[in-house]
Design a binder for these strands. Structure first.
Lengths: 340, 340
DNA sequence: CAAAGCTTCGAAAACGGTTTCGTGTTGATA
DNA sequence: TATCAACACGAAACCGTTTTCGAAGCTTTG
């Protein structure tokens, strides 16, 4: 009962013409007579002929697929980026193959190798923490040396020459910290990850810069560096109990929301006694209680930009080496966790 | 400077053997002598030969790609499902091509057609609300008639014969409602979507069933049906002001979290004056304030199950028609928005 | 009426593999 | 010494397209 997929060959045999004629007729080639074209097109339409993508890919050496490798998909930020990529890619008739590295170097390598052998026309990716920690980018270099375009976003490295798109993390942290200072906060804490993560490092610098510029000494005790991306409730509680803070900047919204909970448990009022600002303007920030002032990373725009850069490079195949880095500007979304 | 991808042909020419010999040697075929095999394998390794996936796909008529079409990727539930799919698929060396229907019938159809022409070995999908509303499943039927395996999850339809995996939404709502009743709640509201959404309908039935079984009349005024998936703050505020509820069941966590905010604004104490339970145990539930008692939908497990069903069907190619529907059991995660 | 030019189509190569089948060479067997 | 099996390899078909090139058959032109 299976309707077998119909091919050019079937049509050719049925209509007693050659395969080439069918192919040309369906492309409305001038070479083919009006009559024959109409016969063939009608037949193809009747049997709902659709060319086989794989065969076309093999012939053209172009798949119209783009590979996206991200550390995690449950992180809201990456989700919005994927959505932006999808949006632009779909408008250009590209498919998106998503792979998760799970923050692991090995999985990142495996996924790249799986896709690099013809499955995709180019990569968009954000480095896993494992990779940034290991500081090994040979898998990326190999891919670019083969002429496969690559766009790095958010978690990038300067080690590999390719297009990049990031937000100005340092600026984001700087502005957020400055905002806190303007509100007469002086004991401003920072909850972050180890500096091996490119974005975490930039944010820390922005935070410190704002403090210094405003005559506030950087107190290392006010900086909590979480060992992993995972929440460790104990560490955060301890941090709040030890340091008497009146404001906290967090590199992600989970840390921020949990920090707020701890502060409330300690009887502090937000934002009267203590202010909070978190990176990534996601669902949590919006629906937290109080709602969280956040630094929006514009993930969707980032995704669209990355997809645009990639597809442009894929489609003009002369491989120029003038790579561009696009820097998006973060914006501060003020809500109830800061005074306004 | 581009390292051209090396092919069998290159190796064959370089080593002065035939392409077939190279192919066999790399597969360690018994046909080829020890010597030749070693020569060829060493050469291939040296030049890092990897077979071209597209060529293999064309030959085998198997792509090792599975297509996933979901309504939205920023919804936490779908994200966890994708993660489950990825996890299982990767372990079987499959890639996952993700497409977003954006809750639109048209986009769903376009995406299916894009992928159905050879790009994938099978589909895993959850219906867009547009499709469920339109009640048109011809695109699904066409695909299955072509012999492409399809697994539907969560938002499914009985109109098309294929494997399915869902959670028992009715049971979830039933248990949640019962839990509220046990806590002496009697004015129990429901915030849901229109009944055209299969899951919303099932949840409404479960809710009503629990009420009836416990001698509580179903009051239609206690049911708020949101016109779309989007939050409409005004509607929710109005609902709470009109009805004096002492408990609310919500079909997603966004409604629940926002409901809690409104309740608090009205001076109600959670859970003393009013309890909340929401579907989908996501980040919001966990980090809400108070944390939200939730019905866990086990998205990751659902994704793994769906991927397993699909890949099993893909790999035994005899197309049996005994389709299975796997029903997962939801669990109630009790937190601070209910008494315990 | 022969040469030239169109129109319309088909053969075949190519993309990069896999696989079947055939064949030449070798050594063992009768 | 003729026969035969085992061994090692290559030719070619095939997957489904696209595209170049050549070649009929016809019409036009000098």
């Amino acid at each position: 009962m299976l309707k077998q997929k119909i091919t050019l060959k079937h049509i050719a045999k049925e209509l007693d013409v050659s395969i080439s004629t069918v192919s040309k007729a369906l492309k409305n080639s001038e070479e083919i007579s009006r009559d024959t074209k109409e016969r063939i097109q009608a037949f193809a339409k009747l049997y709902n002929y659709k060319p086989n993508n794989i065969a076309i890919s093999l012939k053209n050496k172009r798949t119209k697929n783009i590979g996206v490798i991200i550390p995690d998909i449950v992180h809201h930020f990456f989700t919005t980026v994927v959505r932006g990529i999808e949006k632009y890619a779909n408008s250009k008739e590209y498919n998106v193959i998503v792979c998760l590295s799970d923050e692991s170097f090995d999985k990142e390598v495996i996924n790249m190798e799986m896709l690099a052998n013809g499955s995709i026309d180019g990569f968009i990716m954000s480095l896993s923490s494992g990779t940034q920690e290991k500081n090994d980018y040979n898998h990326l270099k190999e891919v670019t040396e083969q002429g496969i375009p690559l766009v790095l976003f958010d978690r990038i490295t300067q080690e590999v020459a390719c297009d990049k798109v990031v937000i100005d993390d340092q600026l984001g942290a700087y502005r957020a910290t400055k905002k806190l200072i303007e509100q007469k906060r002086s004991r401003i804490g920072l909850i972050t990850i180890g500096d091996y993560l490119s974005v975490a490092k930039a944010r820390t610098i922005g935070y410190q810069k704002a403090l210094k510029e405003n005559g506030i000494a950087v107190n290392e005790d006010f900086i909590l560096r979480m060992p992993t991306m995972e929440m460790d409730e104990g560490l955060i509680r301890e941090f709040f109990q030890k340091q008497q803070l009146d404001a906290v900047l967090c590199v992600n919204e989970i840390f921020a929301v949990f920090g707020m909970r701890v502060a409330k448990e300690m009887g502090l009022h937000i934002p009267k006694d203590i202010s909070f600002i978190g990176f990534t303007d996601g669902l949590l920030s919006k629906y937290a209680n109080p709602s969280l002032t956040a630094i929006a990373q514009h993930g969707e725009e980032m995704g669209e930009t990355a997809a645009k850069m990639l597809i442009e490079r894929v489609e003009r195949d002369e491989d120029s080496t003038n790579f561009r880095t696009k820097i998006l500007v973060p914006t501060l979304v003020e809500r109830d966790s800061t005074i306004h």
